[in-house]
Amino acid sequence: MVRYYILFENYEQGLALHDLLDEAGVRNRIAPAPAAARGKLCCGMSLLVEEAELAAAKACIAAHGAVYYDIVGMENQLQPRRDRYC
C-alpha cells in the first residue's frame, strides 16, 4: 500500500501545513521523512497522508498557497501479516 509523504524544507513549513490540513479536516499526521526520500533540501519531518486523502491535501495546499518541497509516494514496508489486533 502506497502512502504519501509531504516533504518540507523546514519544520516551520511543515507545521504550518499540518495546521491547515487539520483545520480543513484532511487526515494527516506528522511522521519522520523517509530516509530514501530525503533530498538535500528536506528536513526531518513530513506529513503522512493516505492515498484517499491525497487529493484533498493537494486542494488544501493550493487553496492556501502552502509551501512544501515535494510529495512522494512510498510503499509501506511493514508487513500487514504481523497480526496485531486490539
Binding site: P34, A36, A37, M74, E75, Q77
Partner: peptide
C-alpha cells in the same frame, strides 16, 4: 536490497 522507489 529493496529500493523503496522501485516497484517490486
Amino acid at each position: 536490497r529493496r529500493r523503496p522507489w522501485q516497484g517490486r
